[in-house]
Nucleic acid binder design. Structure first.
Lengths: 232, 232
DNA sequence: GCAAATTAATGATTTATTCAAG
DNA sequence: CTTGAATAAATCATTAATTTGC
């Protein structure tokens, strides 16, 4: 694989033109992996900001890259484990060939090597999953946290759209910006966009940790991210 | 459902405390439905901004609300159709009872009433889907949307995090109590655990984050293996 | 050795599910 | 029981690895 010769610079999309997708540098990746190992799975908006800021030292990077990275890494790690555990079982219970190698009933529609599919505890080392008396397996109800639980919802994840002033590259020919949805005004490309909450920056503070799934402490109420004024 | 007296003011979450979830006003909903009918399904970031701005006239609303609305509406509209078409088939081909009502082979593991599941045209009234010569069914390549398509990629969707300088700290009762992700100084909170694969950065100190998924990260699960530094 | 042709990874989006407020 | 919100799973698409023919 990649030989990594030195480079501490050319790495990600930073060095290059900037177009196209983010290409993480080695440092960025190792930092992210380190955080992942420390337990971070679904970083809150604040965490993402911090991480992003930190990683920016190694090359161009945006919050969404961090977000996606965790999203993908978590999912792929999970599937890797799942498949590994399947292999494990396979090897254990039978011989090497795949389970159900011979269909018992050839004319019936079966899911191929079907494995719990969605959930139903199949991540041996993962959460035990709460097993209800009826045998039903319920997944961690989002609010019930592993810890005593302090905040009902750590809810981070506000999706995209908002991007206030996000510069997203988009160097792409953007001029025409979406046609007028509400052609009331002559057009002008609307300049409203003033949302901008203007935070004094005041430090990156709020490092909060993380949370999530099993997490715990995520305090983050609910705020809507970028939206200007949050309410309450 | 909600009775909504005419309000043009108290409507959504605007009037109320502001806390909790967005509660669209009648005007907002009809506008959204109208847009949906016009073909909008996954509005771009710009479109969301515009729509949001427009709907703001009827009450508090944020970009994410618009985003989620389209997400949910699209999904639910689709499932409604799907189930309708299933009913249609059912009624047509056989009698009324559900398909596969009697398992042909009781001892075999079958996917329950498995329906195309992922894709393969099953939304009769939706887009026709481009049918390639080979009979392969390609789904709307993400770029081609409802409209004639003007942009190769309107690249909207940047997820949350971005929020550049957003100051949400706000009134949250707790002033940042979240600990730093990248503590510069020893926090005292758990010092061991320095997994830190010695990547170049080293500086990051290991905050303790959490863990989650399995609940306890105390013991590193398992992936530990592959994750560290892969390759290279 | 090197560049076109393949294949493996993985960044970015979209769709499906789930949870819970009202 | 409807539906706003959030997360997970499935996909798509682009980049880096590898392989292959010369």
């Amino acid at each position: 694989m990649e030989e990594e010769t030195d480079n501490v610079e050319m790495g990600g999309s930073a060095g290059t033109s900037s177009n196209s997708r983010w290409n993480p540098t080695k440092e960025q990746i190792s930092t992210l992996e380190s955080l992942y190992m420390q337990g971070i799975r679904t970083p809150s908006a604040d965490q993402i900001q911090q991480i992003t800021a930190r990683l920016r030292a190694y090359g161009h990077i945006e919050g969404k890259n961090v977000f996606y990275w965790f999203q993908n890494h978590k999912a792929r790690q999970r599937q890797k484990q799942k498949q590994e555990s399947v292999a494990y079982f396979n090897h254990f219970l039978h011989r090497s060939p795949p389970i159900f190698s011979t269909p018992l009933c050839p004319n019936v529609i079966c899911a191929p090597y079907y494995m719990p599919q969605s959930e139903m505890g199949f991540y041996p080392h993962q959460h035990p999953k709460v097993l209800l008396s009826g045998g039903v397996c319920r997944r961690r109800s989002r609010t019930d946290d592993v810890m005593p639980s302090e905040k009902p919802k750590y809810c981070d994840v506000p999706p995209l759209y908002d991007q206030q002033g996000i510069p997203y590259d988009c160097m792409s020919n953007r001029n025409l910006e979406t046609l007028p949805l509400f052609p009331m005004h002559p057009t002008g490309i609307l300049e409203a966009k003033t949302i901008d909450q203007s935070s004094p920056l005041s430090s990156i503070a709020t490092p909060d940790i993380d949370e999530q799934e099993g997490g715990q402490l995520g305090e983050q109420p609910f705020f809507d991210f970028f939206s200007a004024q949050r309410s309450s």
